[in-house]
Design a protein around this nucleic acid. Structure first.
Length: 310
DNA sequence: AGACCGCCTAGGAGGACCGT
DNA sequence: ACGGTCCTCCTAGGCGGTCT
């Protein structure tokens, strides 16, 4: 596994980090290819979300069993209002809304608020800004955890507001595009040798609400630096994420002691800064967005405790 | 001022549930 | 076998109040 540099030359990254030159567009300078224009849909999608938020467009839960689609459906209506075509998302598709006609997709994460603030479960897909050639944007929407105050409209149908929302490029969560984790299992466990241990892709990732200050109660778009925002948007912050000194490239688990040991290597891109810009719709709040103060990671703490320096 | 105690909560960990 | 989301349980640690 290797973390991808910010200025890597693969085509899609070049599209992201090339020379911006018009509203929401950026020049892709390919290898011996004609320059190609790539337009992002994010500014339009974000504008629709912001307008819906400010107009009080509610989330509509269709039943008490609807634990995961209520916010997805809210976002789906915004895509439809933006006039975008997308593939209907099945339960197991990633991203939730792959666009048709654009190499972009949106992955939606609904979070009850108050609730988990610092991180979210990202099972089965390691967050990143590129998947199968598509740029991936994460849509974090928070809604009330306590729905008791909202009237039941038969069979658990309820309407309630969006508390706040952040759309961020997946690279804001993780800029590595190279790693592909697959689930594996080990057979023969247990005294009868007939139990299977699953090693399953399950990740816990910090939310943009924890990574950046100034997002609570707001609508915020976080884009890689370099896009030219349309006139209807205002910049509300510059955000930087710095690559870690070390990369976890494996781990071993001792079934006798229940000890899990990470294997780390120096990050060839250590210290590389990835720059992002935060936006809001003009006329809405200009409350600034900035990175939250750095908290030491578990790996940082282990490094200090163990004092190893491979 | 520092020690101690109890309460509270964020979040770590594991799992339920429902699905393809 | 694998995927997505939310729930429950539990505990470390923060915090405020009280005691020494």
């Amino acid at each position: 596994m290797q973390s991808t540099g910010w200025h890597a030359v693969d085509s899609v990254q070049a599209a992201l980090f090339g020379n911006p030159n018009m509203d929401g567009q950026i020049t892709l300078q390919g290898n011996n290819r004609e320059d190609v224009m790539q337009k992002t849909t994010c500014f339009d999608v974000f504008t629709q979300c912001s307008h819906a938020f400010h107009n009080g467009e509610p989330i509509r839960r269709v039943s008490q069993q609807d634990k995961e689609f209520h916010f997805q459906n809210w976002f789906k209506r915004r895509l439809q209002e933006a006039g975008l075509n997308f593939e209907e998302s099945g339960r197991n598709t990633y991203p939730d809304f792959p666009l048709v006609g654009f190499t972009e997709g949106f992955e939606v994460k609904g979070l009850a608020h108050p609730g988990r603030e610092a991180d979210f479960d990202s099972n089965s897909q390691l967050p990143t800004g590129e998947h199968n050639g598509r740029q991936i944007y994460y849509v974090f929407g928070r809604y009330p955890a306590d729905l008791k105050p909202y009237a039941d409209q038969e069979n658990g149908r309820k309407q309630y507001p969006v508390h706040d929302l952040v759309i961020c490029h997946g690279d804001f969560l993780n800029a590595d595009h190279e790693y592909h984790h697959t689930n594996k299992s080990v057979k023969g466990f247990g005294s009868y040798g007939d139990i299977l241990i699953r090693d399953r892709r399950m990740y816990v990732c910090p939310t943009p609400f924890a990574l950046a200050q100034g997002t609570t109660g707001m609508m915020t778009l976080i884009m890689p630096q370099g896009y030219q925002e349309p006139p209807r948007l205002q910049e509300v912050g510059q955000l930087r994420r710095r690559e870690a000194e070390r990369l976890v490239v494996g781990y071993t688990f001792d079934l006798r002691t229940n000890e899990l040991s990470p294997e780390k290597i120096p990050n060839p891109n250590a210290g590389t800064e990835h720059q992002f810009t935060a936006y809001r719709v003009k006329g809405h709040s200009a409350k600034p967005v900035s990175m939250s103060s750095h908290k030491p990671t578990v790996v940082d703490l282990l490094d200090v405790a163990i004092g190893d320096d491979e």
